[in-house]
């Protein structure tokens, strides 16, 4: 079972979402684990309330599950697509004065509730995301741009090289150095 999960962890977001559309539970898990910190961090920053952030996160991933079959990788990155869903969920919640639960209701998935002991986990995940964001901001500009383009925007090395005006090999080195600095920084925190 772990080898299946490891396989999925190496898949691109587009492959994972195609898998989700094909009823692949492990593809969903890999996609969920990959993007959970980003969504939790985003929701905590926007609301300042860990309980609300957990509830919104649940709705975001339920909505992503419902919409997975319609994801078009040529239009935008999966991270951008997911953040777009998060913005819609938050906007709908603000307009209606209650947390959006339409996707969960449609799926019949409203049984998972936030307990008091979960709030610390929410804050821990958000803090980890903040730490990564701070470390990214501290990288030299060329490495930060390359890492962001590769990891967040999921662009190819060829595309990154063209936009930075350097060779593909230099782009790879910048991404590699940037990621190494991030790993080292996270390990010392």
């Amino acid at each position: 079972m772990m080898s299946f999960m490891n396989d999925r962890a190496r898949w691109s977001d587009a492959q994972l979402l195609a898998g989700v559309a094909g009823r692949d539970e492990r593809a969903f898990s890999a996609f969920y684990r990959r993007h959970l910190p980003m969504i939790v961090g985003w929701c905590v920053r926007r609301t300042g309330d860990p309980e609300l952030a957990a509830d919104l996160t649940a709705e975001v991933f339920a909505a992503a599950l419902v919409s997975a079959a319609r994801y078009e990788p040529t239009r935008e990155s999966a991270a951008g697509w997911l953040l777009g869903i998060a913005r819609n969920v938050l906007g709908h919640s603000v307009r209606h004065g209650q947390v959006d639960a339409r996707a969960r209701e449609r799926l019949g998935a409203s049984s998972v509730t936030v307990e008091d002991e979960d709030l610390a986990v929410v804050l821990e995940i958000a803090a980890g995301q903040d730490a990564a964001g701070h470390l990214l901001a501290e990288l030299p500009v060329d490495e930060r741009t390359a890492v962001r383009a590769r990891v967040i925007e999921e662009r190819t090395y060829g595309e990154i090289a063209r936009s930075l005006g350097c060779s593909e090999m230099v782009a790879r080195k910048r991404v590699s150095r940037g990621l190494a600095r991030l790993r080292a920084g996270l390990a010392t925190r």
Partner: peptide, 19 residues
């Protein structure tokens, strides 16, 4: 925790094709 339970529930729904 909450996120493990959420993953299990949504993953199960994905497997059954509810979405």
């Amino acid at each position: 925790d909450f996120f493990d339970r959420l993953e299990a529930e949504l993953g199960g729904l994905a497997r059954h094709g509810t979405h």
